[in-house]
């Protein structure tokens, strides 16, 4: 489903050139739950951003569903992300000015769906993560675990095939972290979502199908 070939990412300033990713090749099958581990600064998030088409590689090729992504325009990339990908971030990135339901609806705003349809889908997504009783709350009124569940609902509301999670349990205690992992596992096994998760936590990684380890921008496992 996802095919990365010789991906390189170089950050350049006037004086320094930093190789963030060095010749990464990776295949992720449909329905797979993959975790990426490595020490801080090894390029985990950079790799996830590149897979999520939020950042472009300096070299190499990415194919998602056999579609080359390197020549896509801004509009095509936005559309592709909207249909195929769902993101979960460590710091949730919820919009504090919007209520929970409005936050979850957000990806649907960039599709042609009616307001009532958006509400129906967002409510269903919140139901899946067990937060249907918090639709009218603002993110600031929720706990960390609840915020992350809202973020998961937002990621799955558009029914994307791929979910990219960047340290989704990083800001949570282990009990809350396990709850989040339960939801991700449910989405993977029951709904068939392909999930790529960046984590620092060995225990969380053990609950996935496969582990990829990075070190100084290179794949070591």
């Amino acid at each position: 489903m996802i095919r990365l070939q010789n991906i390189e990412k170089v950050y350049r300033t006037n004086t320094v050139e930093t190789m963030a990713l060095n010749s990464i090749s990776l295949n992720v099958a449909k329905g797979e739950f993959l975790s990426i581990m490595g020490p801080s600064g090894c390029g985990k998030s950079t790799l996830l951003n590149i897979i999520g088409l939020l950042d472009a590689p300096s070299k190499g090729e990415i194919k998602i569903d056999d579609q080359k992504t390197d020549h896509m325009s801004d509009k095509q990339l936005a559309n592709f992300r909207n249909k195929k990908l769902g993101f979960i971030f460590q710091s949730y990135h919820l919009i504090n000015d919007l209520k929970v339901l409005d936050n979850v609806e957000l990806p649907l705003l960039y599709r042609t769906s009616s307001g009532s349809e958006r509400k129906k889908l967002a409510s269903a997504a919140l139901e899946k993560v067990g937060l249907s009783n918090r639709v009218k709350h603002f993110p600031t009124q929720l706990s960390g675990g609840q915020k992350q569940r809202v973020a998961i609902a937002r990621a799955i509301v558009g029914n994307p095939e791929i979910i990219l999670a960047d340290e989704p349990t990083g800001n949570l205690d282990s009990a809350m972290g396990n709850e989040i992992m339960d939801i991700l596992q449910y989405l993977n096994t029951t709904e068939g979502a392909t999930i790529i998760m960046v984590t620092h936590d060995e225990n969380m990684a053990k609950r996935t199908h496969r582990l990829v380890r990075l070190f100084d921008g290179s794949q070591v496992q």
């Binding site: 801004d74 936005a78 559309n79 909207n82 990908l85 990135h93 919820l94 957000l106 960039y110």
Partner: peptide, 10 residues
């Protein structure tokens, strides 16, 4: 967030 979830620059 908006860009990640499908908003184009336009």
């Amino acid at each position: 967030v908006r860009k990640a979830f499908g908003a184009s620059s336009k």
